[in-house]
Computed example of a mutant assay.
Amino acid sequence: MTYDLHIGDRLHSSWSLRGWLAFAKFGLPVRCHLIPLYSGAFAEGLAPLAPARLVPVMQTPEGEVIGDTLAIAETLAERHPEAGLWPSDPAARARARWLAAEMHSGFDALRSACPMHLGHRWEGFRPGPEVLADLGRIEEIWTAAFDRFGGPWLCGDYSLADVFYAPVATRIVTYGLPVSERAGAYVDAHLSDPAFLEWRAEGLAENRHVPHYDMDLPKAPWPG
């Protein structure tokens, strides 16, 4: 029973990364289909998946089309309760849903000023007050989760909450954003995760430059 997942460029599409991790981290079979961002063919690529208009888009083995990463995640959790996408403990599960929902609906300043870029780091980026406010809130909710559930991931074992914050971890590295040592260790855990490394390697192999994500800043190598 294999799903189909339609994604954007792996180096840049943060929601596609989240969608794919919801499969890869929980052992669910999936075929990926790339619809390049800002290519002039994006709308055409999505046309067979109407009414979806953004990536990622999932097709179930039965052919049902489901858009939006949160809807994809919840559908997979319903269809595969044995996979443990949400924590089994009710308190941890409620917190994980809260964390994922806040990421899904918030942190607009961080997402706008610091789009995901897994190809390299930018040197000399200076976050504005709104980005710093988003970072402060992220630190607050991460710390509260670590204190409540003991780590090593947000709600104990890896869950969909961590899926939703994986691209945040990459942004912290790409733009050299200031975080605490504890948050930095969580970021490092994401960046060394085998599933993330696989995704990034496939993105580098795509070898596609997307000018939309260029910045007037010096480049530096990605860590590791």
Rank of each mutant, 00 (worst) to 15 (best):
W86P: 03
E139L: 10
D89T: 10
W98G: 00
A169I: 05
V210C: 06
F107M: 00
L54P: 00
R18A: 14
M1E: 04
G40A: 15
A94V: 02
W20R: 14
E140N: 03
A100M: 15
P129T: 06
W86E: 15
L99K: 00
R18Q: 14
P90G: 07
T143G: 11
A92W: 08
V210D: 05
L85C: 07
M116T: 06
L154V: 04
I138S: 01
P211R: 12
L85H: 10
T2G: 05
L177M: 02
E62D: 15
D68Y: 14
A205Q: 11
I141R: 13
A96L: 01
S192K: 10
S180A: 10
V30L: 10
A92V: 09
I172A: 09
W122R: 04
P194K: 03
W222Q: 07
E123G: 12
I35R: 04
D193Y: 14
H12S: 04
E206L: 05
K25Q: 15
F107L: 14
T170S: 12
E82K: 09
G19I: 02
L99R: 00
I7E: 13
D162L: 07
L191A: 09
V179G: 02
W222Y: 12
P218W: 00
G203A: 04
H104D: 15
G124Q: 06
P56L: 11
P194Q: 10
G128H: 07
P218E: 05
M215V: 08
H33V: 08
W199F: 12
R53K: 14
L191C: 09
V30C: 13
H209K: 12
